[in-house]
């Protein structure tokens, strides 16, 4: 019993340590280098003119990610020219979800004509740093890579025409006017990020 308690205790410590490692609002994100669907490695530093980034953890297989595909494309089209490109990252382990393997990512990107980088988090090293838990999960960074917003794209996954609050657009508008987004964190339903074990 004592050893069990010890295990639970250490595990709890370990998980809280893991939690503490992921980025919070106001923290600076580390740059990363991940393979894009075109085969080239992409980093945030490849966008020297960026005023910020819309980092979206998303994937092929998840119905919620699919419902937001078009909206993510629209976000990039609207905001990349204003200095806020979308950087999409697939965090799933393709051994768990074969539909999310690199080839399928390439196919989807071609089919939907993704105008943004769609990166593969090979080895699943990047998403835990961000603390992403689901797809889609958005992190908006400012030009210094400081995390300004974490959460949902808007308040209605199913029906774009019924959207009342556009969280990502509001957050960028706030950053543009030198303010902090409010809310800076939102919740949404999504698919859990798939990993082994």
């Amino acid at each position: 019993m004592r050893s069990l308690l010890f295990c639970v205790f250490t595990l709890t410590l370990f998980t809280s340590a893991l939690d503490a490692q992921s980025y919070q609002i106001g923290q600076k994100a580390e740059d990363f280098s991940l393979k894009n669907v075109d085969g080239k490695m992409v980093s945030l530093s490849d966008y020297p003119a960026a005023k910020g980034f819309i980092v979206v953890f998303t994937c092929n297989h998840c119905p919620y990610a699919q419902m937001y595909e078009k909206r993510i494309i629209e976000l990039h089209k609207k905001y990349a020219k204003k200095g806020y490109p979308v950087i999409a990252i697939n965090p799933n382990d393709p051994e768990v979800v074969p539909e999310d393997n690199f080839e399928s990512m390439q196919k989807l990107s071609n089919k939907k004509k993704y105008p943004f980088a769609y990166l593969f988090d090979e080895g699943q090293k990047v998403y835990p740093k961000f603390g992403a838990t689901r797809t889609p999960h958005v992190f908006i960074l400012d030009k210094n890579k400081v995390v300004k917003y974490i959460g949902a794209i808007d308040d209605n996954a199913k029906d774009e025409t019924a959207v009342q609050i556009r969280y990502v657009e509001d957050a960028i508008a706030a950053i543009e006017s030198g303010k902090d987004p409010n809310p800076n964190t939102t919740k949404a339903v999504g698919c859990s990020i798939k990993k082994k074990g």
Binding site: R134, G151, D155, Y167, K187, V189, S192
Partner: peptide
């Protein structure tokens, strides 16, 4: 309705992924 409202009502630690 808006998940940003009801997810927190169920548990504040829930990010919204299922199960």
């Amino acid at each position: 309705g808006n998940p940003n409202v009801w997810i927190n009502q169920i548990d504040s630690s829930w990010s919204g992924s299922i199960p």
